[in-house]
Design a protein around this nucleic acid. Structure first.
Lengths: 335, 335
DNA sequence: ACATCATATCGAACCGGTTCGGTGATTGAT
DNA sequence: ATCAATCACCGAACCGGTTCGATATGATGT
């Protein structure tokens, strides 16, 4: 392994000059710079990122933490962030928090120990205590999808109340009144907002919500499965079900198929977020989709800016809210 | 930030003793050890992994490189590896090679510069030159899915010829003779083996293969789409199609739906590998599935063993071949 | 011609650990 | 009682960079 000292010796300069030449070439004399570059070529010198990290106190890694990388919504975001990170010379450290706030916290702290340059985080924590933790974290963080009030961090997400507002209005227009809602984990930002979008829209339309039709599916496949089972085995079952995310929506469809309900003839279904092969799923599900790619793009840009530019780092935290899109399928019918 | 020197000062010992206490506690006197541990508690000292990496020449990161993390086959493997890695104190550095061997090579080299402890690799390179590159790589590598002859590395994968042999025999038994095969990128290990499984089985059954029914779909969704389109618009179209992986299989189903073919009434379909929501896709596709979780588990175990135990590191490379499982769906019918 | 200032380069300290050779004290064998 | 081996611990070099204050040189202004 050739080091910066080898290069310095070969070029006949000091190691600090080589370091200078590497980091701010304009500050080195033209001829000297040339000799150094020659030396680098001929020795095949490659800078050691670990030593650099130790000396600088900051690595060229960025972290990506979310629950459920298996959900392609997060997968798409990850892809986009990784792509931009690599373009800027950063590697991506991935960790799946499995939706557990304590694990997430441990992961963030371990990443910080690695002197990670920045973190893109879809948090699972909430509450003032957690907000304080995030606020005081020294490493730049860009939060996406899940916002935490009081964290005072950049945030990139979607208009969550709107997602379910759109779906609810759609179902109301089709004549549905007994609409069930399978919600995400309460306390979680998107879950609360989506639930609120549903409740508010129902209220605005003057339709009473049967509380027993509002179920907590935890954003998971199994949670959705359980709740859909419960909802569909009732005597007075709903005429339509909204899944607050893709996993629970599809789990509901699965339950319908297992139990012999036809969709949308027997029960209508709508959900938030797409999945990769939804266009070969019968029926095509009516959904509201977030632009995951755009979201990842924005998060990555924001994070990289904060990391590399002191001005951007000084800016106050900012929210970027994307507008979700309605995609009508064939899983909802007029009553 | 408190360092090892602070701990040493507080405990009244030298820093090398603290280091000793941290790494091999048995080699330190009981009472001294106690004082050091007290000092660690009271200062809240956390070891700096970066400094450790620099000094040791090896980090606590392991790399995961594959094409297409979007394909949940790789996603499942990633999850498993990440899980085990975290348990053992390692973080996972993820990089998607997008199927490009040159990019993959650059990624591996960058990972090596990070002094990464080991790499789990689903390679996209092939040929003697690439095998030599992999063979001479100094960092431990466990290859999975894609094997490269001559790389002399541990390998964890499936019996690939068997995957398509099973599917082909299934279709033959149902009376199909004009069977089309949408293959992966030629040169790639799994692609070649799966194609071979098909060709050999057809030959063994004494059925001629129409070469124009064998198409190269590059393992991608778009590739599969294109080839399926081509195959299905022919006058003498096949009675059945095999997709050599999930993406191409589903793309074929999509084309059928777009073109108004019914599956399996008009054309039968079978594929290798599952996708997450296949049970809500109509028709349920007949497939041969690999045990991705088991595969990831084995790869992780092997890699971690090689990293942490000198004995394991010295063992000759070994192949672990899993047997894929046939899952009959409703996408194939008797002619 | 002299003070001023910018430019190019260097030396040394530093980042926070690991590791190895060595020292003094203790233990065990003879 | 003597010598060797073992044990507990220390000092210093090292991993490979960055950074800042210092120095020398040359250009600029008057």
């Amino acid at each position: 392994m050739t080091t910066i000292r080898d290069v310095a010796r070969l070029a006949g300069v000091s190691i600090s000059t080589v370091s200078l030449a590497l980091n701010s070439p304009k500050r080195v004399g033209a001829e000297t710079l040339d000799r150094i570059q020659q030396a680098i070529k001929s020795t095949g010198y490659r800078i050691d990122p670990v030593a650099q990290t130790l000396a600088r106190g900051r690595s060229s890694l960025i972290g990506f933490v979310s629950a459920n990388l298996g959900n392609m919504f997060f997968g798409d975001i990850r892809r986009e962030i990784e792509h931009q990170a690599l373009d800027h010379g950063y590697f991506v450290l991935i960790a799946d928090s499995s939706g557990r706030a304590d694990l997430e916290r441990a992961l963030l702290e371990r990443m910080e120990a690695q002197k990670i340059a920045g973190i893109a985080l879809a948090t699972n924590g909430h509450g003032e205590e957690y907000a304080a933790f995030l606020r005081d974290f020294k490493t730049p963080i860009v939060m996406f999808d899940q916002k935490v009030e009081g964290a005072e961090r950049d945030f990139v997400g979607s208009d969550n109340p709107l997602t379910t507002t759109i779906l609810t209005e759609h179902l109301l227009q089709l004549g549905h009144r007994r609409i069930a809602f399978i919600s995400g984990p309460s306390g979680l930002h998107t879950a609360d907002e989506r639930l609120k979008g549903f409740m508010d829209t129902m209220a605005a339309a003057g339709v009473d919500v049967d509380p027993s039709l509002v179920a907590e599916g935890g954003y998971t496949r199994t949670g959705g499965h359980t709740q859909a089972m419960r909802l569909l085995t009732r005597r007075d079952r709903p005429t339509a079900i909204i899944g607050a995310n893709n996993m629970m929506g599809l789990a509901t469809l699965q339950v319908m198929q297992e139990m012999g309900f036809r969709c949308p003839e027997d029960v209508s279904l709508a959900m938030v977020d797409d999945v990769p092969w939804s266009n070969v799923i019968t029926p095509r599900i009516t959904m509201v989709v977030q632009d995951a790619q755009k979201l990842g793009e924005l998060a990555a840009q924001r994070l990289l800016a904060r990391i590399s530019s002191p001005e951007a780092a000084a800016e106050p935290p900012q929210d970027f809210i994307l507008t979700p899109k309605f995609v009508r399928g064939e899983s909802t019918r007029r009553l």
